[in-house]
């Protein structure tokens, strides 16, 4: 790993100022960034740790929504959201392994937007709002493809607000070595309709499966999606699974998620 300067500000303003330097990057839990830096795929000159900023941590449950600070770990979300939004807590409690969950953060996961990460599926299916130091970004406008988001240079996520659905579930099929989702489906049923977000499968990263959403909004049962088929065009293909395999897997998991949501 190439060396860098380490700074740890205690406010969002100080962090934003430190990130004004072109060669500076934010560091949250580091569970993706540090392995990437070891491989020299990333070599920032300055790392700006966000974990010293207390204002970015914590969970607030209020009425019909849950708000999670960007620097809140997966372990904290798994524990503190369990009552208000069990499907989201279950998702957080199954990311990586216990050590990863004690370091990795929701803001880090959403800013990185790994095409096989779990949180993007929850944010998109819930219709969450990503709040930054500059603005509020609806999930539908936030994800812009593999490792790409609407975030601009020097913009950092401060918190994420999730509307709580009437029913929801996340089901993933793990690649056993990496524990990332080979495909993962988050289904969320709201009064106004059902949202379905799929991660792990597409070359474009997380996406909504609108055909399934329509079918499920009329009939919220696994049977409603069994006759549908997801186009294999644009799905990822590698030694773990072909594009056709991933498309089929995503469909099967959608049915299982609906059943799990009840």
């Amino acid at each position: 790993m190439y060396n860098f300067d380490f700074v740890k500000p205690s406010t969002v303003e100080e962090a934003v100022a430190a990130l004004a330097d072109d060669e500076a990057q934010p560091l949250s839990g580091g569970q993706t960034l540090i392995p990437t830096m070891k491989q020299r795929l990333n070599a920032p000159e300055t790392l700006v740790s966000l974990l010293g900023i207390e204002a970015l941590k914590g969970v607030t449950v209020g009425g019909d929504r849950v708000t999670i600070g960007a620097a809140t770990t997966h372990a904290t979300v798994a524990r503190e959201v369990a009552e208000a939004y069990p499907a989201l807590a279950a998702l957080a409690g199954n990311i990586g392994d216990p050590a990863v969950r004690n370091r990795g953060t929701i803001g880090g996961s959403l800013a990185n937007n790994d095409p096989a990460a779990c949180y993007p599926a929850a944010a998109l299916a819930s219709g969450a709002t990503v709040v930054t130091n500059r603005r509020e970004i609806p999930a539908d406008e936030y994800f812009e493809g593999m490792f790409a988001t609407a975030l601009e240079e020097g913009e950092i996520i401060t918190r994420v607000t999730f509307p709580i659905p009437e029913a929801a579930a996340y089901v993933k099929f793990e690649q056993p070595a990496s524990r990332f989702a080979l495909a993962g489906v988050f289904v969320a049923k709201f009064a106004g309709g059902v949202r379905v977000a799929i991660t792990g499968a597409s070359e474009e990263g997380v996406f909504r499966w609108s055909e399934a959403e329509e079918a499920l909004s009329g009939n919220f049962s696994a049977g409603a999606v069994s006759a549908l088929s997801l186009d294999a065009d644009g799905m990822m293909a590698d030694l773990h699974g072909s594009a056709e395999y991933r498309a089929h897997l995503a469909k099967v998991l959608t049915g299982r998620a609906v059943t799990a949501a009840g």
């Binding site: 380490f6 540090i34 392995p35």
Partner: peptide, 29 residues
């Protein structure tokens, strides 16, 4: 492994189980 997979480097930081190969020493100040 030094790649965050194996867990042989697991320690506790402020009571939390972490992989010490996937955290900088400066973060444990």
């Amino acid at each position: 492994c030094d790649t965050s997979q194996c867990g042989a480097c697991t320690v506790h930081v402020d009571g939390k189980q972490v992989k010490s190969c996937t955290m900088f020493a400066a973060e444990a100040e």
